[in-house]
Design a binder for these strands. Structure first.
Length: 609
RNA sequence: GGAGUGGUAGUUCAGUUGGUUAGAAUGCUGCCCUGUCACGGCAGAGGUCGCGGGUUCGAGUCCCGUCCACUCCGCCA
């Protein structure tokens, strides 16, 4: 045995015991003839005392940061205790030591507050992982995983592995492909998710399946996206939407309890997709704060059931509003005293290319009940008051109004809402609000191809009421300009997303399990019978043999961990993440391969440029 | 595919209007120090200013190109 205890273990009650520790040198503090060394392992830090008797030995074998050390000695009570660390009441008076391995000087400090930048930390990830801050994140990830497995196991879910080398499918994200040597000229794809396999497991009667599993999507990355990421993937049969919502609210609540010690007792809110878009301009709204959108003007075909109040802003000669497809306001609480500088900053913010607004209109609802707006020329007090009332603004609030094309304006209003929420400190880190978003549209219109694409995926069932509508109508879009009038535009999906503090943490649907409906769906997505057989013959075949009603959900494991860990970036919660360009800068992947490998695969490169 | 920001010592950064020898902190090395725990003190080493080209008497600084990183848009069923 290299050690009798860990570096986080010894306490005052171990006083006078003879022990052996092994670990890494965190710091060396030399005081002439005595030397203090902090020894670190996964469990903590223990201070070592090298007394005068070891001086010569230390000079012969000097210690540096990150040297691997084995030390034996006696546990002493410290004369000066350190209350900042759990082992701070004791120290190990070293009687003998062995340098198990030396270390080069690390390129950055291995501390909670490292001086290393992201790039460097990624390149030396094995050093970064020694840091307490990163270790805590991986521990949290492990805890989330354990909690998940415990809950699902207790609820009769069965962990079943599914293959990674599968078949490329047309819909959805770009596949990572893997050439097959034994089947020259043919390719596997890595799964974007185990979707079809888990459905087949339902057909096989494994009525509750789960897996914490890697998924692969070859798309451009973001701070919160990785080319390979992990999902908590689940499927159940003989269930309706309500059963799934209940089961997986339970899972998330359990994770809160196990990992964060939070009893989430309140009811999980629910909202239709239409209502989310109307009220928050976003299909994953952060409902921790009250600010809501006021739809002063909107296209009637987008929200056919909503009341038109555009007369409040139209017809005063203010062209920006008169000509806009949509005009949306939010009331920022307590901001009526904003200075010119502050409002200018907000204007600049919405004019950035990412937001893309031409400008921002302000109405200050002064404490004294008067109004002051940047468009006083066009709007009298009466109108301003009417707008303020519609926006639910109180005295002391600042109304921000954006105008322009519907989609962009709605997104800008939502972005602005989130920005103000953050700026005003309304998005509190320790506040968690769960939300189900329901009744998504089943289809989206793909302009380039003039056809429907599945918003969720092609296995999602329409709402029961919409099945007839789907079966009995021709999916072909005759008039591209009026695709919104096509019966398919209004079909709702039996799908649901779970949203936590403005993040989509999971999503799923009740699946199609009837062969005919599945064929209709594929046809709606532009697949003829031949292509359907080629791509999904196995699934259609399975549906001929007693497929049960089923549905499921998948949670983004990395993102869930990052939210629970209070971080923006999922990279902090992945042991070996990839950078923005999908590179692993530590092992330098992807890389070229040997000519021999190309020959075996019978593949030739044909690089552009 | 598009937009923006950045790249200067091992590391994190500063660097004025284009002007003498490019700085700070930290880390590193050496010496001193018996109670530190962000130890302290003294001394020292350490630079292809991402790369290429241009403007200029003179470029870390201005211009063009390029590479890399990050953030966002498109994309991510």
């Amino acid at each position: 045995m290299f050690r009798t205890h860990t570096c986080g273990q010894l306490r005052l009650e171990n006083k006078n015991e003879t022990v052996t520790l092994a670990g890494w040198v965190q710091t060396v503090r030399k005081f002439g003839s005595i030397t203090f060394v902090d020894l670190r392992d996964r469990y903590g830090i223990t201070q070592l005392l090298f007394a005068e008797s070891l001086n010569a030995s230390l000079e012969a074998n000097p210690l540096g940061r990150e040297y691997v050390l084995q030390v034996s000695g006696t546990v002493n009570e410290r004369s000066n205790k350190n209350t900042n660390i759990p082992t701070g009441e004791i120290e190990l008076a070293v009687s003998s030591f062995t340098i198990l391995n030396k270390s080069a000087v690390p390129p950055f400090t291995i501390q909670d507050d490292t001086d290393g930048g992201d790039d460097l930390r990624m390149k030396y990830r094995y050093l970064d992982l020694r840091r307490n801050a990163v270790k805590k994140n991986l521990e949290l990830r492990y805890a989330v995983g354990r909690s998940t497995r415990n809950y699902l196991h207790e609820n009769n879910f069965m962990d079943i592995e599914t293959p990674f080398l599968i078949k490329s499918t047309p819909e959805g994200a770009r596949d990572f492909v893997v050439p097959s040597r034994m089947n020259a000229g043919q390719f596997y794809a890595l799964p974007q998710s185990p979707q079809t396999f888990k459905q087949l497991l339902m057909v096989s009667g494994y009525d509750r399946y789960y897996q914490i599993v890697k998924c692969f999507r070859d798309e451009d990355l973001r701070a919160d996206r990785q080319p390979e990421f992990t999902q908590i993937d689940c499927e159940m049969c003989f269930v309706e939407q309500e059963d799934i919502l209940q089961t997986f609210e339970g899972l998330v609540k359990r994770i809160f309890k196990d990992v964060k010690g939070i009893e989430y007792t309140e009811k999980v809110e629910r909202m239709t997709w239409e209502n989310a878009m109307w009220t928050y301009g976003n299909d994953k709204p952060d409902i921790r704060f009250e600010i809501k959108l006021c739809n002063l003007k909107f296209p009637s075909h987008t929200f056919p059931d909503r009341k038109d109040i555009s007369s409040l802003v139209s017809g005063t000669g203010f062209n920006v509003f008169d000509d806009a497809e949509s005009v949306i306001a939010i009331a920022a609480p307590g901001c009526s005293e904003y200075t010119r500088k502050q409002t200018d900053e907000l204007t600049e913010w919405v004019k950035r290319p990412q937001v893309g607004m031409k400008g921002l209109v302000f109405i200050k609802c002064n404490i004294d009940g008067t109004y002051k707006s940047s468009v006083d020329k066009f709007y009298n007090t009466e109108r301003l008051k009417a707008i303020a009332d519609a926006a639910n603004a109180k005295a002391g609030d600042l109304i921000l109004i954006v105008a322009g094309p519907e989609e962009r304006t709605r997104k800008a209003a939502s972005d602005l809402r989130m920005y103000m929420g953050t700026t005003l400190g309304l998005r509190k880190a320790d506040d968690y609000k769960l939300l189900w978003v329901l009744d998504f549209p089943l289809f989206e219109y793909a302009e380039e191809e003039n056809r429907w694409v599945a918003r969720h995926h092609p296995f999602t069932s329409p709402k029961p009421d919409d099945i007839g509508n789907m079966i009995n109508n021709n999916p072909v879009i005759e008039n591209a300009a009026e695709y919104l009038k096509h019966p398919y535009a209004n079909i709702k999906a039996n799908a649901y997303d779970m949203v936590l503090n403005g993040n989509e943490i999971g999503g799923g649907s009740i699946r199609i399990y009837q062969k005919e409906l599945q064929e209709k769906m594929f046809a709606a997505l532009g697949m003829d019978a031949r292509e359907q057989q080629h791509k999904f013959g196995f699934l259609l075949g399975a549906f001929e043999y007693g497929a049960p009603p089923h549905g499921g959900i998948a949670f983004g494991f990395d993102r869930l961990c990052s939210i629970l860990g209070g971080s923006e970036s999922i990279r902090d919660f992945i042991a070996f993440p990839k950078n923005n360009s999908g590179r692993d800068v530590m092992i330098d992947a992807p890389s070229t391969i040997d000519e021999k490998q190309f020959e075996e695969l019978q593949i030739k490169l044909n690089l552009h440029s």
